[in-house]
Design a protein around this nucleic acid. Structure first.
Lengths: 192, 192
DNA sequence: GTCTATAACACGATAGAC
DNA sequence: GTCTATCGTGTTATAGAC
């Protein structure tokens, strides 16, 4: 039920399709997936609900398209992570790249974090959760202590948290702070 | 619109009222506030929707009752925190007591964390958010650096995060781990 | 590719009997 | 204190004209 467009011209951008995704992301992130109706999306675009159904076969298909790019990016990131050695310096590089790539994904990640109940019922929710678990497992040594397991989870979560909990701070300054705190968390982990 | 019962016997427990709160908390935490209908709550209790409206004047009044106890507890905790000195050891004691008292509140906190869109429209959401901000501000020194601000926020949220992200670990072991990680986060903060 | 119109349904909330 | 029945509204989604 999360397939692509049903009737639109086979894989090519119609333009409207992208505008729908963009507006949908804004509204989903601000008001939540459940509380954003297709009527509201259509109104903001200056079209009717029915027009949306030409481009997407369901509401879920819209959010699937919104998540698509980030999910692919995460796949690449995780695959690269798996090739990295289990050393302290390598973990630092991973953290740095994670913070960097989280910039463009902050809206989607906020949407994912704040809409737990909806994400539990959506395919994209399961896909995102699977990747985060995979990432945590990849970073966690086989026989890590409980505090170490916690440090890794907190480090990853802190990246998202800080993005929408301290929006009053300039981006570069915030990024540097995140990297600093994440580094000192991972520094305590014994990578064995 | 978040008042108490409209017709029930003035402040005393009817028994049914508490059962409604208990069932509502379970369903709200598991399926979310929006996705839990009054029909489902009523069905699980073996009564009809209309019966709920004798005990609570609205759906929002139910979740208000669910949050009531924890909100009062937080008020007490924050008031106590404000009396504590701005020393490193005092912050540690605060953290320890926060971890301790978070045990009983984990369902409500999960509900709060995972239902961002709903909490933005509910009075209890605003009340809880106000208290968390108050707590962060109370703990944060006047001219704290950005990394220090981040450390304090992360420390507080890490407590909630760990509660429902590592449910496979025994509670006592998890508690000890949380305290350890939170301590080392706060240890880095310069309290001036 | 967008429209009007509507189907089918669930929701929160209320009225009034018992 | 709980019931049956219903009201009014909003939702996702579809049918068919243009």
């Amino acid at each position: 039920m999360t397939d692509d467009t049903p009737t639109a011209p086979e894989g090519r951008q119609s333009g409207t399709r992208q505008r729908i995704q963009q507006v949908a992301l804004e509204l989903f992130a601000e008001y939540g997936y459940d509380k954003t109706s297709l009527r509201e999306i259509a109104e903001r675009l200056g079209v009717t609900k029915a027009a949306l159904y030409y481009h997407f076969k369901s509401k879920e298909a819209i959010i699937a398209a919104v998540f698509e790019e980030i999910l692919e990016e995460m796949d690449g990131f995780i695959a690269w992570t798996k090739t990295q050695p289990r050393t302290s310096t390598a973990r630092q590089q991973i953290a740095q790249r994670y913070v960097e790539s989280s910039k463009g994904a902050s809206s989607v990640m906020r949407l994912f974090q704040e809409n737990g109940p909806a994400m539990r019922e959506l395919k994209v929710g399961e896909q995102m959760r699977d990747r985060l678990i995979d990432l945590v497992n990849t970073l966690t040594p086989e026989h890590a202590s409980v505090p170490d397991k916690l440090r890794i989870r907190i480090a990853l979560f802190a990246v998202q948290l800080s993005r929408f909990s301290m929006q009053d701070v300039p981006v570069e300054e915030l990024d540097a702070a995140i990297v600093e705190v994440v580094f000192e968390l991972l520094d305590r982990v014994s990578w064995e």
